[in-house]
């Protein structure tokens, strides 16, 4: 259990964490503005994708870094969010306030059912149980013939907010996603410094000691699991809008694996690192993939080199501090 999170824990200060977070968000907004001014709508949609992936990665990073829970099924809540958006939009309910809360609540409720079962275990068994549940949802989504089955289906229309078409263009979608990412990043950072976050963090260090202090360990872990699922579902709603398409591929275990890779690449527990790693992986695919179909070879070599040579991670490389709050 402990070795799941061996990343160095530096004594943090909430203020500095917030500053780093603001810097990353500011950089994304600046990139978006530059892309707009330079008239590169293509980059705009790329930035939107980075922001959306970051939200998903952030929720998983919180789960892994703060609670020490490695979910190999994080694609499931993302997919659930996407399908909520698809189904609501088909029924004419496009308002984001409804879509986002419905996605958050549904994914959270499902996590509330699967969580206690998975949380009876730790380590690899927990990883495999989360995978098992995600696989079940993958097959359920594939069998929804009236929603496109395995092929998926185009979104009827993009979401709105209080009657305004605030996701009409890719730039608007990207701006909204970054704004939402900012809110979630700040909320997560704040949560890491609350009593809830501190107890979670303490549990990754020594679960027994925390339990001996009278804390219901599994309750805390379950809350973290449920919140992370809800946030992931939020990114699913945005993902559906970004691609204008929803398919079971969103729930594939490859996606869960990619998210873990992004989180670890960014540095476990380094929330802004998750954003940097999302950007790295997406840009890698985008630009190397433009030149060769063997871009995964390059990504693989980069990943192995990062792991072997430095034994550190991207977050550390860019000077992002670990947010694990331990006095």
């Amino acid at each position: 259990m402990n070795d799941m999170n061996r990343a160095a824990v530096v004594n943090p200060a909430l203020k500095q964490d917030l500053l780093t977070g603001f810097a990353v968000i500011g950089a994304l907004f600046a990139a978006l503005a530059t892309a707009q001014i330079a008239g590169a709508p293509y980059l705009t949609s790329l930035i939107g994708r980075i922001a959306i992936t970051s939200i998903a990665a952030l929720s998983l990073s919180f789960l892994i870094g703060q609670a020490g829970l490695v979910s190999f099924g994080h694609a499931a809540p993302i997919g659930i969010g996407a399908y909520v958006a698809l189904m609501l939009a088909a029924g004419g309910t496009t308002d984001l306030s409804i879509q986002l809360s419905a996605a958050f609540i549904l994914a959270a409720l499902i996590a509330l059912i699967t969580g206690p079962i998975a949380l009876k275990t730790r380590g690899v068994t927990f990883i495999m149980l989360t995978l098992a549940f995600a696989q079940m949802f993958f097959y359920v989504a594939s069998s929804l013939v009236s929603w496109g089955g395995d092929d998926g289906m185009a979104l009827a229309q993009r979401s709105t907010l209080f009657g305004y078409q605030i996701l009409r263009t890719d730039a608007m979608l990207a701006a909204f996603s970054i704004a939402l990412l900012a809110v979630i990043l700040l909320a997560n950072t704040w949560m890491a410094h609350t009593r809830f976050g501190l107890v979670l963090k303490a549990m990754t260090e020594n679960e027994r000691r925390v339990a001996a202090n009278g804390f219901e360990v599994n309750h805390f872990l379950l809350y973290a699991f449920v919140i992370a699922a809800g946030v992931a579902a939020v990114s699913g709603v945005l993902l559906a809008n970004q691609a204008n398409y929803v398919s079971p591929a969103y729930l594939n275990w490859h996606r869960s694996g990619e998210l873990i890779v992004i989180v670890v690449l960014g540095g476990v527990g380094r929330l802004p690192g998750a954003v940097l790693a999302s950007a790295l992986v997406i840009l890698f695919e985008e630009f190397l993939g433009h030149y060769t179909e063997y871009w995964k070879l390059g990504l693989g070599l980069t990943i192995v080199a990062i792991v072997l040579l430095r034994g550190r991670d991207l977050g550390a490389f860019f000077g992002v501090r670990n947010q694990g709050a331990r006095p």
Binding site: M4, V261, L301, T302
Partner: peptide, 18 residues
């Protein structure tokens, strides 16, 4: 750590597959 193992071996999969 286990997580770094996951990351590193995932990289190996990408390399060998390609």
């Amino acid at each position: 750590s286990h997580l770094e193992q996951v990351l590193g071996t995932f990289g190996v999969i990408l390399i060998v597959t390609d």
